[in-house]
Amino acid sequence: GATAVSEWTEYKTADGKTYYYNNRTLESTFEKPQELK
């Protein structure tokens, strides 16, 4: 079976905060997504 690849990509803001962006739902969040835990 195919492994589900996380759609979340980790980015940093200009002031160094980490956030996560989902390229399928176009959602962004500062909290670590469930799929990455």
Rank of each mutant, 00 (worst) to 15 (best):
G1V: 13
G1Y: 09
G1T: 12
G1E: 14
A2Y: 08
A2T: 14
A2Q: 13
T3H: 13
T3L: 13
T3G: 15
A4N: 13
A4M: 12
A4R: 10
V5D: 11
V5L: 14
V5S: 13
V5N: 11
S6Y: 08
S6T: 10
S6F: 08
S6E: 10
S6R: 09
E7V: 07
W8R: 01
W8Y: 02
W8Q: 00
W8A: 00
W8K: 00
W8P: 00
T9E: 12
T9M: 11
T9I: 14
E10F: 03
E10K: 04
E10T: 06
E10L: 04
E10P: 04
E10Y: 03
Y11A: 08
K12R: 12
K12S: 07
K12P: 02
K12Y: 09
T13V: 02
T13N: 09
T13H: 04
A14I: 11
D15P: 00
D15T: 06
D15S: 07
D15K: 04
D15G: 06
G16V: 00
G16I: 00
K17E: 11
K17H: 07
K17R: 14
K17F: 07
T18K: 08
T18N: 05
Y20N: 00
Y20M: 00
Y20I: 00
Y20K: 00
Y21F: 14
Y21S: 03
Y21V: 13
Y21M: 07
Y21L: 07
Y21N: 02
Y21T: 06
N22V: 00
N22R: 00
N22K: 00
N22H: 02
N22W: 00
N22M: 00
N23I: 12
N23G: 06
N23C: 15
N23F: 09
N23D: 07
N23T: 15
R24Q: 12
R24Y: 12
R24F: 13
R24K: 14
R24S: 11
T25S: 05
T25W: 02
T25Y: 02
T25G: 01
T25E: 01
T25R: 01
L26M: 15
L26F: 15
L26P: 01
E27D: 04
E27N: 03
E27L: 05
E27V: 07
S28I: 15
S28H: 11
S28L: 15
T29A: 04
T29D: 02
F30E: 08
F30S: 09
F30T: 10
E31N: 09
E31V: 11
K32W: 03
K32P: 10
K32Y: 05
P33N: 02
P33M: 02
P33I: 03
P33R: 01
Q34H: 11
Q34P: 14
Q34A: 14
Q34G: 12
E35N: 09
E35D: 10
E35W: 06
E35M: 05
E35S: 10
L36M: 10
L36R: 07
L36Q: 07
L36F: 10
K37D: 14
K37F: 15
K37A: 15
